[in-house]
Structure formats: C-alpha cells, structure tokens
Amino acid sequence: MAVCALRNSGFAQHQRVSDGVRLLLDRQLPNGGWNYGNTKVFGVELHPAPESTGAALQAVAGLVPYQEIKKSVDYLRAEVDRARTPIGLGWGLLGLGAWGEAPQGSSDLIHQALGRQERYGPYDTSSLALLLLPLVAPGGILEVHNERPPM
C-alpha cells in the first residue's frame, strides 16, 4: 500500500519504494503468491491469498522483471476466476491488470460480485470502490494517477 501510494504521488524513485519492493519480493511465497507477511513458519510454506497477492503485484508492477513474479501471476490467474468478493476480486484484477494479465471477462466477474449484494446486503463504500476500480483502471491503479506530474 505504501509503495503504491508513493508511486501514485510521484515518488516512484524514492528510496523507500526500492526498500518496499525488496521487502515484498523477499516475502513472496516460493510457490507463488503472498500470504500476510511470512513465507514459512517452522519450515512449512504458508498459503497465498488473492487480496495480498493482488496488492503486492500491483505494488511491484513494472519495477521487477516479469520472471520474478511469474509464479504469483500464475497463482492469481487461476484464483481470480473463482474470487467473488470485493476485496479478493478487486485486488486480484488490479494486480493482474498492472502486469497486463487481466482475464477476459473481468467486467462480468465484477458484475457477478455486485449481484451478490442481494445475498449479503450492500457492500461498504471502500469495498464497493475497490470492486469497481478495475473497471476504471483495467491496467492497475497507477493508471488512475498517471497524469500527475513527478514531484
């Protein structure tokens, strides 16, 4: 999040962005994806989650070679088709979109997720915004602010 915020604010060259990217790559799971922080506990690899994987892919997009995150993209591409929640689907599509890997039919997935409010009630504002964001920025959230001049 901090890396995304700095990049969106025109501080892409800031040292903390480099530090953040290095940290994220260090915490990438060996078999792809990101958990909530650690990669292994007592020698056992943890499970990846779509929301954290999408956010991390979004943060490092364009700053690291594709090969370094390919396993995570593969994981997320397989996962995003079954993601139906605003947080999982929203971050999943943003992360893939940032690498030009958004799946066909992203819009349909978003509309299906919107339709599920009939079951769960209205989504809160931040969840709704996150779910809709890939429609506005199919190539990731950096697109939203790409007009901003560097500071």
């Binding site: 909530y36 779509p50 999982g88 769960y120």
Partner: peptide, 10 residues
Amino acid sequence: HRRDTLAVYE
C-alpha cells in the same frame, strides 16, 4: 490472517 472476511465466511 485474511483481510477478506467475506471470502473466509463463504
């Protein structure tokens, strides 16, 4: 662990 509570709930 998961920020996506709805996913865990489902």
